[in-house]
Design a protein around this nucleic acid. Sequence first.
DNA 1: CCGATATAAATGCAGTTGCATCTATATAGA
DNA 2: TCTATATAGATGCAACTGCATTTATATCGG
Lengths: 150, 150
Amino acid sequence: MTENPSPAAIKAWARLMRVSRQLLERAEDALKDAGLPPLAWYDVLHELAEAGEGGLRPFQLIERTLFAQYNVSRLLARLEADGLVEKLRVADDGRGQTVRITGKGREMRRRMWAVYGRSIAELVGARLSNNDLETLSALLGRLRHPAMPE
Amino acid sequence: MTENPSPAAIKAWARLMRVSRQLLERAEDALKDAGLPPLAWYDVLHELAEAGEGGLRPFQLIERTLFAQYNVSRLLARLEADGLVEKLRVADDGRGQTVRITGKGREMRRRMWAVYGRSIAELVGARLSNNDLETLSALLGRLRHPAMPE
DNA sequence: CCGATATAAATGCAGTTGCATCTATATAGA
DNA sequence: TCTATATAGATGCAACTGCATTTATATCGG
């Protein structure tokens, strides 16, 4: 009986896809206009900043960001080339490495957040009450895969 | 005062981006697994099917699908190469053309919908009640740009 | 009617993504 | 221990995207 989607499901799907694409594009444009790198960079810098001095293994970044493996590999190469992250050999696993954010990386993250955060505030925060935002988050949470208890 | 996003706004944004990406990827994978073309093809075929025999001008497709102009141009070239749409010179505007879906295009759309619709039913329809779906649609509707009255 | 500007659509080129594969190391099992 | 398999990460190549520009036609102002 999950064969054919109900009209309500189709509408919610369509809006979800359309709105998310639209808002994402707006946020990307804001960064671009400010001469800053794309959002993917922010996502990685954010995770690495949260991780602290210990850094993260690339495969951990993949889990957290949902980016594809090859994508992370190349993204890290670009971030390293720009001096925003550094790669460290890890002692107990010769295959891998640990990636750590640099001071320059933290600075870039800060500058990106100034723009990105403003986009979020404008595009979402200014349009729904806190209560509605909570409702939205809860509903979206139930669509996550794999489904996790709220 | 829309400077800094509230925690509720950040959370809603993060979920929106993450969930939409995840669900989109799932739907794309389902099509790929079935040996069918990507969702973008469906979007165009859908619009053209709705438009009927009169077809649509490429710029109308751009408005409806939110794809970039160059993207539509190339997508239509691929669809035409596969015989799914046909391009017709339009009498009263020598710059443009009208694009019409072919029988083969309708057939492809039908086959894609069999898979895509099932994805929507499973990923969204089976996870939220009709009532929650309506709520979700309404909240997302308020995030559209430009904002339109519900 | 004519030149300037605007709109429709296509395209060359550079950068990015996706796929498949490859290299290197680690772990498991005989 | 030695081989087989699994995991971490990088990469060659083809397809796709984004940007800027180009071509062609239409419209507007004088």
